[in-house]
Design a protein around this nucleic acid. Structure first.
Lengths: 373, 373
DNA sequence: CTGAAAGCGCTTACAG
DNA sequence: CTGAAAGCGCTTACAG
């Protein structure tokens, strides 16, 4: 990076005596080859090289070919810092994750991230990873990402009402997408699974099996989607003539440990419970772990229903019946829409993707409802 | 991004009549504030502002304070594209992952990524995500990342001997780190778990419990670490007087499904097997799933031993005995060393981190070895 | 269809 | 201790 005196050819295109002898193959590897080098070698201006690179219509076929050959020959790669500095876009997106210890190992986030990354790759966008740790919010790095020109757009995952920093985006032109949630305090774009419908599918199924005393292990109520699920759970039971006592609904913090503890509390509150509906698969697994430890048979004594359909729930014993959430597709869609938003080809975004039940081994008819008990 | 005619103050520092009236608070939000703006407002040169920003010793305390005040007042944020274009570093690292469908949901990769990201964040480095898909390799994007100045350094995860593109780095000065593996065809830096020792710990434990007919479900043999584990497995059994038939060792492709299939083949080849040692936890879980389906009790009939200690194996039934791999720490260390490498404060890196056994429910004494059967 | 020039917003010798 | 100037490597009106 040491500054160097300019050393242009006196007559570009005509190799002067001062030139180093042309090397065949891939040129000296020491110094990086720049657009200037290509231009000189091809006997054109840098403007022309730039336009060839950007496939401008205004360049003749002949020039295009000539320049392209030199580019290939020299192995020239445009410096994207310079491109972005002069241009309008960085072609980088950021994924903002909550500061949980195991976010990167969590299949829920993993599926969303997969969808996003695959899509970003297709559009030649790079993806950087951020976590909303305390220092991040304190220093307003969510704004800094845009203001310092790190990124063109931001995808927010795992957020809820308590993440007030999202309000900062309400009056700014930065492209932001809420992934698999909504945000109540600002009209931000979002793509989300249809949580209400998913909960309806789960509850319909459990009710059909004859269950009435159904416990619910839910996630953080600060999340709009978690509230949706609980609301449907209560509504469906009420419609079936059951008024849900408060102690049938316990917060399981979206973790295995929390799910196990919540199951314990529910069973203590209502020992005759016949089914447990969990707001995500991890809590369902935690609940099954608790039940197995207490000698309760799943699904013979108690049915367990999950939510998410993360991959390995098919390999636990018994395998988990659950609601499939199209997380990969939500990630893809969110990324798609964000990119269109950046390019001004899209106004506001609010999309819901459908869910379905995956039947496996952890659910059965309610004991009382069975023909022969 | 429209080019604008230069509009410098005729006498910087002394507000001329042409100046817009100074606004209090945070300035007009339309245009981004640049170093030029700060310099003009503070009555110094951009060079001085730059040096204040970079905490140069050569700036007087008074000037520093004056400039810093203007920076705060204007809410100035340096454009990092310009910084990197003029400077030597991008302050961005890339994580290169294998093109597996569920990499981002995989707890193994998740732990490594967590360690890397936490560490990178501490050093104010951004992290971008890449996958070595066919197109990636075909277009030599692993080199492009450096040549187009996307990144300063690269962390490679989940690689093995078949990833020949790594050879490209052998004769180039780009900082590259192999994370939790080694590469046999080039002397690249690496940080890895002590797989040999982990395998020894697992085998010692199983042998102590009286097991002799032990099956092995291993991962891809193209991986040096997988070969290490299998080598120790064979060696330890041989030392115990057991010659391992080939059909006791089956490739489980590191997946649950593969683990289940491998367990089936091992049980078919040697029905009297009393223990299964899997090269990762996912395969162990798959094996347990298969055994449960066949009515084989774990650990009463067959013990199952995992490898990795991914989080949710504590919540399956029975919970999984396994070898804990310090994956988070490997990620941290690899990131640390890479950053030092970038700054030329480190020569070559080759580190091994220790493992230990985590005792849970899936292992017990071999049936034959038990006092009362 | 192409070139000369200004501009993007920084950093870093080089003077003084 | 500070400023003027060159340079990083591109893109984009503006001419011709």
């Amino acid at each position: 990076m040491t500054p160097q005196p300019p050393h242009r050819d006196p007559a570009p295109g005509s190799a002067s005596a001062a030139d180093p002898p042309p090397v065949e193959g891939r040129e000296r590897p020491g110094k990086r080859v720049s657009m200037r080098d290509v231009a000189d070698r091809a006997g054109v201006s840098v403007a022309t090289v730039s336009m060839v690179l950007n496939k401008s219509e205004r360049i003749s076929r002949a020039t295009h070919l000539k320049v392209q050959q030199v580019i290939d020959k020299l192995g020239y790669r445009p410096n994207r810092l310079a491109q972005s500095l002069s241009g309008a876009y960085t072609r980088v997106l950021a994924i903002l994750l909550p500061p949980l210890r195991h976010v990167f190992s969590d299949p829920y986030f993993g599926e969303l991230i997969s969808g996003i990354c695959d899509r970003a790759d297709r559009f030649s966008q790079k993806v950087i990873l951020e976590q909303s740790k305390p220092a991040f919010l304190r220093e307003k790095r969510h704004l800094e990402l845009f203001e310092r020109r790190f990124i063109d757009g931001l995808l927010c995952l795992g957020l809820n009402d308590e993440h007030e920093f999202l309000k900062d985006f309400a009056d700014r032109p930065y492209p932001v997408m809420i992934v698999d949630n909504r945000f109540k305090d600002a009209p931000l774009d979002y793509v989300v699974c249809d949580y209400r419908n998913g909960a309806e599918q789960a509850m319909n199924y459990l009710l059909q099996l004859g269950h009435r005393r159904i416990g619910m292990i839910h996630g953080a109520m600060a999340s709009p989607t978690a509230r949706d699920v609980v609301a449907v759970y209560e509504q469906r039971l009420r419609e079936a003539g059951v008024d849900v006592p408060d102690d049938w609904k316990v917060d399981g913090r979206y973790t295995e440990q929390g799910g196990a503890e919540a199951a314990a509390r529910i069973c203590a509150a209502e020992p005759r419970i016949t089914a447990i509906f969990a707001g995500n698969d991890k809590m369902a697994l935690g609940a099954m772990h608790y039940l197995a430890g207490r000698g309760v048979r799943v699904p013979d004594d108690v049915s367990v229903m999950g939510f998410d359909d993360i991959q390995h729930t098919a390999y636990v014993n018994p395998s988990l019946t659950t609601v499939h959430l199209p997380l990969y597709e939500v990630g893809e869609r969110a990324c798609d829409r964000l990119i269109q938003r950046i390019r001004n080809k899209q106004t506001s975004v609010a999309e819901k993707l459908p869910t379905h039940v995956v039947l496996r081994e952890s659910t059965a008819m309610a004991p009382a409802a069975r023909p022969s008990v």
